[in-house]
Amino acid sequence: MNGMSRIVKTITSIVFPFIMIFGLYIIAHGHLTPGGGFQGGAVVASGCAMILVAYGSVWTMGKIKEKNLSILESIGAICFIILAILGLGFGTVFFKNFLVGSNIIFGIVPSFGSTISNINTAGVIPLMNFAVGLKVIVGLFGIVLIMAYASRRRDNK
């Protein structure tokens, strides 16, 4: 897939930051409003897929190497599993939400019932949201990118 016209490229590069911000907002507020790591990751990945369509897979692959993709993804996954293992270390069992109730980062427990949003809640969940978000962005975008790049390779043959 080669790049598209200049108009498309310009509009894409204008729209892309907004999609990015929206996705990151969904990731960051996952414990308060609808959303979370997966949903936000999917939104950001679709934004990145738009870049891919506008600029072509060769250009995108030149910017982001396949190796970097797999390393970034590994890092996201490792962060997630290490948060789970930290539950074993600080708490008692796997996936123990060890930060909740501790009043340090994200440690506040909201009062029961309808509350106004306070981002400093939910313990380990926002951190997991970020780890999963990174993983999902890189994973979904990686799938699209590799498939697009590989199917392009055939056209040149």
Binding site: L32, T33, P34, P110, G113, S114, T115, I116, S117
Partner: peptide, 14 residues
């Protein structure tokens, strides 16, 4: 309603 407590409509049985 959806199980989200942020600005829940008043009068929702929990």
């Amino acid at each position: 309603v959806a199980p989200i407590f942020t600005s829940l409509p008043s009068g929702t049985e929990i």
